[in-house]
Design a protein around this nucleic acid. Structure first.
Lengths: 354, 354
DNA sequence: GCTTTTTGTGGTAGCGCTACCAAATTTGGC
DNA sequence: GCCAAATTTGGTAGCGCTACCACAAAAAGC
């Protein structure tokens, strides 16, 4: 006799069976009352409800997901959680998801494809029902894993012509080009350009392409002396503005195509007595709150970050419900906020410094 | 014969059994090779490894967690993901957790206990192995749920004498008091105080208590005219500084005990020609990068946000490993960054405005 | 060489839930 | 009032993994 083998029953946690006993119904009825109340009569629903209340039952979604082969958890992989851009997208995503009873698993990859691959594998192990990836560059295995998993997946970092599945973003190329065209139309002729190091940031490459395309269209020469790469943060703007002005004293505008560099640059200009915008115009990429609170206020692109988060989440929800229709790639619109830092002729006296 | 009842076998996804067959071992050996490689001989380990590589197997952690009754997912509930304070804590937490093979489920509660309760229930449903809660106020059911779950739980929003389980934070009371004492020692005598509305922010209450305690110790009267509540963000600082200066023209310093209010106030002072620090000194709570980049630089408390994240995650990991020792409440240290915005006598001319 | 210990591998049952079908109950048609 | 259809409830098997024990094989002891 093989008694004593295998595992003993666990009596710790409350199970559906316990609630069922309490309500005097079968476990199946409890299960249905939870996920498809309409399929259960009013009387049963009430009894189950009461029993759950009474016992303080918390359904085990691990078991539920294993059994039903689908979970209510979405995985999000961003380069970093603390960066406010990603954080805002994450917030928008979380808000939409939670409205639909979905949960958010977050990992940060730090711009590293290998880390992204590991996170994807881990998330698939958790059997997430969908993925949101910020990056658009993936390792071969990462791509294979996602395809094999067959779950809805949105890429949100930038537009791709070859999405894994879905893509919701804006065109960094078009945005950068539009801003440079805008500066050109204001009369600036020596327009500098600063990004993060292009070698580990795909988006910087797109933006620089946009810059070049605009110069060409404006009939302006491309001069390596007024193109720079710099570190993220205020400090990056500080060092870049100093570098460009020294290399090309005739520069009349700089477009900082990343992060809060433009603000760092503005502060440095003020410290050094370079009037903005009279001596040097400054434009930024992406609209952080700060840009409209400094003096002078800084001209920038308004990138629909939260819209990206909302739409990508909404798209996933639609796909999960089988109600999604429309193209797999959504190109969201940006616009330009023209402010004091690129205003010619009538200068802003409150921006003056020693 | 009851054939046709129940469910048919699923052949979609790769299971451990498939890998086992491929490797020519039993599923048990595969299972062990994955989670306790030391218990398996080198030869077996290699064969299993090769089979996993070959098949592209991704273990189903849902099944694993269900069976082992423990998951590798930690739940974090913060008031909001996009707020950089919480985002930075979350980042630090995620970093430590991922080093230990744990994943992070995030929910935002928006300062609402009911939303927090819902998130806790949802997370417990997902059978998280630990919880990190920013809030220290919980509904009765939330408290009951957490206690019943019996999982390690850290509260990180502020120090409590009565933690649910563990607490890692700093004392908002001591921090605020220290800053006001600091301002007093610099010679300021009419020190204003601004927080977020205390009614929905427990931490604001602590900070105000600290302010009062310091005034008392400094022998200064408490004057409702120089205490205000304001909205978060730059705008909150703008409106508060105007309000306080109008109500009490003799005010000589303001301590903004929340968010980036101090920066908003500084900008407004510059717009209105109120010299900082000569006309009005400004101090802030918590060290955002921005504070040391504006001119004048802003005096502030340095709160160990990332340290809170790191330590709380580390504590959970230790508890999960059963190696935790030490007190359940950890009081982390803050310090004061004295900068130009509260510098007397030798004033900073670069901070001058029209 | 034969038992004892150590090490490695395998079988079974069960984690708590849900899909699928069957059975019971109610409702409707005439 | 009787049978068919619609509605509601219940039983069984299985989701893919791991805990627990049993057992085989190798190593060690005498």
């Amino acid at each position: 006799m093989r008694q004593g083998r295998g595992r003993k029953r666990n009596n710790d946690a409350l199970r559906m069976e316990d609630v069922a006993a309490q309500a005097g119904v079968s476990p199946m009825t409890v299960s249905r009352a939870l996920r498809d109340p309409a399929a259960v009569s009013q009387a049963m629903r009430d009894r189950v409800q009461a029993a759950m209340q009474h016992t303080g039952y918390v359904p085990n979604r691990l078991a539920g997901s294993l059994s039903s082969q689908r979970s209510r958890v979405v995985g999000l992989i961003v380069p970093g959680i603390s960066n406010s851009l990603y954080a805002q997208m994450a917030q928008a995503i979380a808000d939409v998801l939670s409205q639909h009873g979905l949960h958010l698993l977050i990992a940060s990859s730090g711009h590293d494809s290998a880390a992204e691959e590991a996170a994807i594998a881990a998330f698939l192990g958790q059997r997430v029902c969908a993925l949101i990836l910020h990056s658009t560059r993936h390792t071969a295995r990462a791509t294979a894993l996602v395809k094999a998993a067959g779950i809805p997946t949105v890429e949100i970092g930038q537009l791709t012509r070859t999405p894994l599945d879905l893509c919701v973003s804006y065109s960094g190329f078009k945005a950068a080009k539009a801003m440079v065209m805008h500066l050109g139309s204001l009369g600036y002729r020596r327009i500098g350009f600063v990004t993060l190091p292009v070698h580990d940031n795909e988006r910087s490459v797109e933006r620089r392409r946009g810059y070049r395309a605009a110069l060409k269209e404006l009939g302006l020469p491309e001069d390596p002396a007024i193109i720079a790469e710099s570190e993220p943060g205020f400090a990056g703007g500080v060092s870049a503005v100093v570098q460009l002005i020294e290399r090309a004293p005739d520069i009349d505008a700089i477009f900082f195509a990343a992060d809060v560099m433009a603000v760092g640059a503005l502060f440095e200009c003020q410290r050094r007595g370079w009037a903005v915008p009279d001596r040097l115009a400054i434009a930024s990429f992406d609209d952080v709150d700060l840009l409209s609170h400094v003096a002078p206020t800084i001209t920038t692109l308004r990138i629909p970050r939260e819209e990206i988060g909302r739409q990508s989440a909404a798209m996933l929800v639609a796909r999960l419900n089988g109600t999604h229709e429309g193209p797999p790639v959504v190109d969201l619109k940006f616009d330009i906020a023209q402010r004091e830092s690129t205003t010619r002729a009538q200068k802003n006296t409150s921006g003056r410094r020693s």
